[in-house]
Amino acid sequence: MRLALVGTGNMGQAIERLARQQGDEIVARFNTAHPLPVHADVSVLNGADVVMDFSLPHVVRAHIDAYCRWHVPAVIGTTGWYDQLEEVRRLVEASGTALLYAPNFSLGIALLKHILKQLLPLLEQLPDYDLYVHEVHHTRKADSPSGTALMLAHLIVDGLSRKTRIETETQHGRIASNALHVTSTRAGQVFGRHTIGICGPFDELTLEHHAYSRDGFAAGALQAARWLVGRRGFFSLDDMLHEWLHISSETNPR
């Protein structure tokens, strides 16, 4: 693949390193020192097959508008813009291009989501169990809570009737019973740790994903890019994973 890399921070560097190992070519790079010229034409991407955007929340929407105008597939790993999902969906579909977004490209997080979805119907029948979400990231992370933590929180609120809203602020008094508390810590060089706590009157169950490095995220993002090329539409990582699981179940029936 010929890739345009938008955002050359730690994640962008991990993608570039792994892409080169896989035989892919980085044909364009943009960052805060050399911003993506969103008002230029598609030639600035030097013939890239797909854009990998791991930039910053305050610029990513303008980037997406440009990708749609240029009709170039884009993988978006930047978070902090999900309040505009439906608006972006309409834009992508109207333009006839392709966009895949995810707050986290780790296969481990995908497994965690699957486990959580299976567990929530059981917890619905166990009202004494309360839940929380906590995430830890490095001090340079731009958004808080992380997009992954909010994604997990929305799964819980959507799947558990006793939790009807997400609370991300510090609580200096009693928290409402219908609020799901989502908290964050920023420290050192932590790549990412997401914890779901399930607290009962006599015990606690903890589901946790701990990323050892950024390579797992980079590998997932590159897989998403390969899957996206040649498609049209607005996708999440779940769409790719569901297709893989469907093929796997047909190829390897039990």
Results as ranks from 00 to 15, higher is better:
64 I>D: 01
98 A>F: 02
188 G>W: 00
89 R>K: 14
247 I>W: 04
71 H>W: 01
175 I>R: 14
178 N>H: 04
153 A>E: 04
94 A>H: 13
46 N>G: 02
121 P>H: 11
173 G>K: 10
38 V>N: 05
67 Y>E: 05
9 G>N: 11
141 K>A: 06
178 N>K: 00
171 Q>P: 01
151 M>F: 07
83 D>N: 07
142 A>Y: 06
223 Q>S: 11
144 S>E: 11
40 A>K: 12
118 Q>P: 01
124 E>S: 13
100 L>N: 05
241 L>F: 04
162 R>V: 02
177 S>H: 00
115 I>Q: 13
178 N>W: 00
203 D>R: 03
131 L>V: 12
130 D>C: 03
19 A>S: 10
78 T>V: 08
237 L>S: 01
187 A>W: 02
208 E>M: 15
223 Q>G: 13
134 H>Q: 15
155 L>G: 01
28 A>M: 10
135 E>Y: 02
240 M>A: 06
183 T>M: 05
53 D>M: 14
150 L>H: 03
188 G>P: 05
37 P>G: 02
62 A>T: 14
133 V>I: 15
42 V>W: 02
209 H>T: 13
247 I>Q: 12
209 H>S: 13
104 N>Q: 09
248 S>D: 14
47 G>D: 12
10 N>P: 04
178 N>C: 00
115 I>K: 14
154 H>S: 14
127 P>V: 10
52 M>T: 05
87 E>S: 14
197 G>V: 14
21 Q>C: 02
66 A>L: 08
120 L>G: 09
238 D>Y: 05
5 L>Y: 06
187 A>E: 12
184 S>P: 01
120 L>C: 13
76 I>L: 09
166 I>P: 07
110 A>Y: 08
64 I>L: 14
98 A>S: 00
36 L>S: 02
181 H>S: 07
179 A>M: 01
250 E>I: 03
248 S>N: 13
239 D>W: 01
34 H>A: 06
122 L>E: 06
237 L>A: 06
72 V>Y: 01
88 V>N: 02
45 L>D: 10
248 S>Y: 13
94 A>L: 10
132 Y>W: 10
75 V>T: 09
166 I>M: 00
166 I>R: 00
12 G>D: 10
36 L>A: 01
221 A>G: 08
235 F>R: 09
5 L>W: 05
148 T>M: 06
131 L>N: 04
18 L>Y: 03
249 S>R: 13
187 A>S: 12
